[in-house]
Design a binder for these strands. Structure first.
Length: 512
RNA sequence: GGCCCGUUCGUCUAGGGGUUAGGACGUCAGAUUUUCAUUCUGAAAACAGGGGUUCGAUUCCCCUACGGGCUGCCA
């Protein structure tokens, strides 16, 4: 077993973290915990042009809400390998680019963006589908391989903008053993001379992530499949920097796909299809555009995480509901699947329902209380808890409680029209009146008692219970469905039910 | 286009040379609660296609098809 496992989640702060990112963070977290290792948050902000204010803060808040905090890194008390923001590590990268140049594994390039564009266009015209800056084309570009040493020196000294590119060998087989995918083999001729160091003095992702992973003693790189094509490049970097023996193991996670059609789940899909893609609400600082989060939609973070964990990983058993601790002990990268997984919003709701079911009535009452207070409801806590335990089995979210059970606190203002249309007739009115009278004479009003009364009356009047049961419900709650009716009546109490029956008898005839 | 990765019910997936191919969500049907939006039971529902290898392939290999990712001085 490896010792001192160190993994990192390394998002770039270009916007809110979406659920794919959360899952990557989760798998990193689970793996770290499982191995007794360290989970690190590193902010990859090497692209200053794409910086989004508040994004970093959002990422940190999201991890906290989910309950998968980093042990080390930005927003989590730093650690021994800081700083953990690449912009603050700016000074560390150049020396490694220089080493590569010294070893002739990299070179300076002075081509302007226009010249690069020109090169690509020319090659396309000549029939090259994917023009590359590579072992062939670099000979006709402006770089330290084609220019004389003096020219290069002069350009450098005169402050001409330059980048440093990796000199990818012409024809070499590069391979690595991915934990999830097995051996991945790529010919170096298919890799281009990637920019490692940008003209603005910042490294690109490729250089920065390799340098930082090395410096931070990262043992396993667990990231999305979109990185698979550049992994060989990173392997090359480790080799050229002579860090191969401490090169991390790679695990490339399958993508999360959109529920409709195909393709990677994107930030836009959520609002288009009506489910959140972000853990928390987000307001775009530029456009003011709002996106809803799982938190604000009423999801439990545990349910959200549980769903995410099973999207691309499974324990090999039939267990589906896992606490975080259970996930940690069951998790392994080997059981992560290779193929992309379509996200299923319905099953996500189901997970939340499962967690809701597992709450105790006091927990539910506490969670519901703010809304009740806001609505000016002032009820006994024991009563509220009883309401919660009835509502619990009908709801997926606590935020459905009010629309499902407002009638516990206030008489209905409307009645289900469908039911009235179908069931309201003279016989039904007679039933309601009779039931009302009997109900008032009841000495105790337990649900069993009420049910017995109900049945007796049905027999007396020769009415099938099915004909009036739902109507009775509508008269009292206004709704056509809900928790056990006699429980509701019992809980509401004699006086209230009596009032409501009177009101229903009075209002319903002129209804619909 | 090129390179890379993938392909078991509609969806998430288990399995793995000989199985009635298992589970979950969803769907549908029955039951029960003499209502329902709960619960229970049940049903329909899958190995992309073609070649090998093999006594036998859904499982191993190859090809095809399809899907996805990447192809920036983005990450």
């Amino acid at each position: 077993m490896e010792k001192n496992v160190r993994v990192r989640f390394a998002p770039s702060p270009t916007g809110p973290l979406h659920m794919g990112g959360v899952r990557t963070a989760l798998y990193n977290y689970l793996f770290a915990k499982k191995m007794g290792g360290t989970f690190i948050l590193r902010i990859e902000d090497t692209d200053q042009t794409r910086f989004v204010a508040k994004a970093e803060e959002y990422i940190i808040e999201a991890l906290k809400w989910c309950g998968i905090p980093a042990a080390e890194g930005v927003g989590f008390g730093e650690g021994a390998y800081g700083p953990y923001r690449q912009s603050e590590r700016k000074h560390m990268y150049k020396q490694f680019a220089d080493i590569l140049i010294e070893k002739e594994h990299a070179y300076y390039a002075f081509d302007t963006p226009e010249e690069l564009e020109q090169m690509r266009e020319n090659l396309k015209k000549a029939g090259v589908a994917a023009p590359q800056y590579n072992a062939i084309t670099r000979h006709s570009m402006k770089n330290s391989l084609t220019l004389s040493a003096q020219e290069v020196q002069h350009k450098l000294e005169s402050g001409e903008p330059y980048v440093i590119r990796l000199k990818v060998p012409r024809n070499e087989e590069i391979k690595f053993n991915d934990i999830i995918r097995g051996w991945v083999v790529v010919q170096s001729s298919n890799i281009d001379d990637k920019v490692l160091y940008k003209s603005d003095g910042m490294p690109t992702y490729h250089l920065a992530n390799v340098v930082d992973d090395y410096l931070m003693k990262i043992t396993h790189v667990i990231r999305g499949e979109e990185w698979l094509p550049s992994a060989p490049l990173h392997v090359l970097l480790y080799r050229f920097l002579e860090w191969e023996e401490v090169m991390p193991r790679f695990a490339h996670l399958p993508l999360i796909l959109r529920p409709d059609g195909n393709g990677k789940l994107s930030k836009r899909d959520g609002d288009r299809l009506g489910f959140p893609v972000f853990p928390l609400n987000w307001t775009d600082p530029e456009t003011g555009e709002n996106s809803t989060g799982y938190k604000e939609r009423g999801y439990y973070p545990q349910a959200f995480l549980n769903m995410l964990a099973l999207l691309g990983w499974n324990p090999g058993t039939n267990q589906e509901i896992f606490s975080l601790e259970e996930l940690v002990s069951a998790f392994s990268l080997e059981r992560v699947s290779k193929s992309g997984a379509k996200f299923d919003p319905e099953k996500t709701k189901w997970f939340n329902q499962q967690y809701l079911r597992r709450q105790t009535p006091p927990q539910l009452a506490q969670a519901w209380m703010p809304e009740l207070i806001e609505k000016g409801i002032n009820a006994d806590s024991v009563f509220i808890e009883k309401v919660c335990s009835l509502l619990q089995e009908k709801a997926h979210f606590i935020n459905e409680f009010w629309s499902l059970g407002f009638y516990f606190f206030t008489a209905p203002a409307e009645y289900d029209k469908e039911v009235i249309k179908k069931r309201w007739n003279e016989k039904a009115v007679l039933f309601l009146e009779t039931f009302h009278n009997h109900f008032l004479t009841l000495s105790e009003s337990s649900s069993a008692e009420i049910e017995a009364t109900f049945k007796t009356i049905c027999e007396q009047l020769q009415i099938k219970p099915g004909e009036v049961m739902q109507l009775l419900r509508v008269a009292i709650t206004g709704l056509g469905g809900g928790p056990a009716l006699f429980e509701i009546i019992s809980l509401l109490g004699k006086q209230e039910v009596s009032n409501r029956l009177k009101m229903a008898l009075d209002k319903i005839p002129s209804y619909a």
